[in-house]
């Protein structure tokens, strides 16, 4: 399965910009992003689907170093289907 980075973050505005900045600077593609608040909403959980890359260990370390990132885990057990955009794209628009 594809590598997925699971992050626990402080749910501050701008936290997503900090995270994506680490990837965009290196032209390291994020294939999928899934994100939402957990608990009382002060924290969020983020799943980043990435491709296998030599730079992955380093990016994990840098993510860990971000002040708003509370936890980092690399997983290989997340089914790719959860990132499938068609799951939302093919929903009927409520009008």
């Amino acid at each position: 399965m594809q590598p997925v980075i699971e992050l626990l973050v402080a749910n501050h505005p701008g936290v997503m910009a900090r995270i994506t900045n680490l990837f965009s600077r290196r032209a390291f593609n994020l294939e999928g992003i899934l994100c939402g608040p957990i608990g009382d909403g002060r924290e969020s959980r983020i799943f980043l689907q990435v491709t296998e890359d030599d730079r992955l260990p380093r990016v994990l370390k840098e993510l860990n170093g971000l002040h708003d990132v509370l936890g980092v885990m690399l997983r290989y057990d997340v089914p790719a289907g959860v990132f499938d955009p068609r799951r939302v794209g093919e929903m009927k628009m409520a009008s």
């Binding site: 701008g14 900045n21 600077r25 002040h67």
Partner: peptide
């Protein structure tokens, strides 16, 4: 300012 300084600070805040 938040966006401009995001990659050149250890951390930054926009206080609301």
């Amino acid at each position: 300012t938040f966006g401009l300084t995001l990659p050149i600070t250890k951390h930054n805040w926009l206080v609301r």
